[in-house]
Every structure is written in structure tokens, then in C-alpha cells.
């Protein structure tokens, strides 16, 4: 008893303890999304396969980051860092692809 009391005292200032039920619920959502991504790969989606697969992966990643990694309950600085990493990936891929896919547009020597 006293141990429980003391430990909750020790944590009152820093942690938001997420209920086990929440973790398990997130886990089942992740499972459903995993199943969805496998089944979607067999469906006749034409050119939308990559888009669907990446959207599902992104949702899974966001759920893991927000709840398993506690970012949802974290300090603003953690938010900035987590969102920042997605932003940098976006910049990297965005500019890289806009370079590669526009090279054929203009016939400039030595491009």
C-alpha cells in the first residue's frame, strides 16, 4: 500500500499514465490497418496502390508516435521535434522528386 502511494507521489509531476485499455485498443487498430494494407495489395486499385499503402503506413506511424511514444501527452518541445522529423523527410523527398521528375521538361544542355 505505502509503496503504491509513494510511487504515485514520485510521479505526480511528470507522467501521464495511459490506461492499459487505451494501449490495447491502439494495438487492435494497428492490427486492422496491417490487415487492410495486405488485403489492399491484392485489390485492383490500379495506380492507387502506393498511395493507399503509404496512407495506411502513415496512419499507423502516427498512432504509434502519438500513443506508444506518448507524444500526445508530451511537452511542446517533443511535439516540435517529432513533427519536425516528418517535415524534414517531406522536404527531402519533395525537393528530390521535383528535381528528378521535371528534368525532362526543358531541353537544356548538360542538365
Amino acid at each position: 500500500m505505502s509503496e503504491l502511494h509513494q510511487s504515485s507521489e514520485a510521479h505526480e509531476q511528470s507522467h501521464h499514465v495511459i490506461a492499459v485499455k487505451t494501449y490495447v485498443m491502439i494495438y487492435w487498430v494497428l492490427m486492422a490497418l496491417l490487415l487492410a494494407t495486405v488485403l489492399a495489395s491484392d485489390m485492383p486499385l490500379g495506380g492507387a496502390h502506393l498511395l493507399v499503402a503509404m496512407t495506411i503506413a502513415l496512419i499507423k506511424a502516427i498512432l504509434i508516435v502519438l500513443f506508444f511514444m506518448h507524444v500526445y501527452y508530451s511537452a511542446p518541445l517533443t511535439w516540435v521535434t517529432a513533427v519536425g522529423s516528418f517535415l524534414w523527410v517531406g522536404l527531402l523527398l519533395g525537393f528530390l522528386l521535383s528535381d528528378y521528375f521535371t528534368r525532362g521538361w526543358l531541353h537544356i544542355l548538360g542538365k
Binding site: T37, S41, A53, M54, I56, A57, K60, A61, I64, V65
Partner: peptide, 9 residues
């Protein structure tokens, strides 16, 4: 885990 979530598809 997140890395694998992207690598798999």
C-alpha cells in the same frame, strides 16, 4: 517499429 511499418509495404 515505425521504420518497419514503412519498409513492409
Amino acid at each position: 517499429d515505425v521504420v518497419w511499418v514503412f519498409l513492409y509495404p
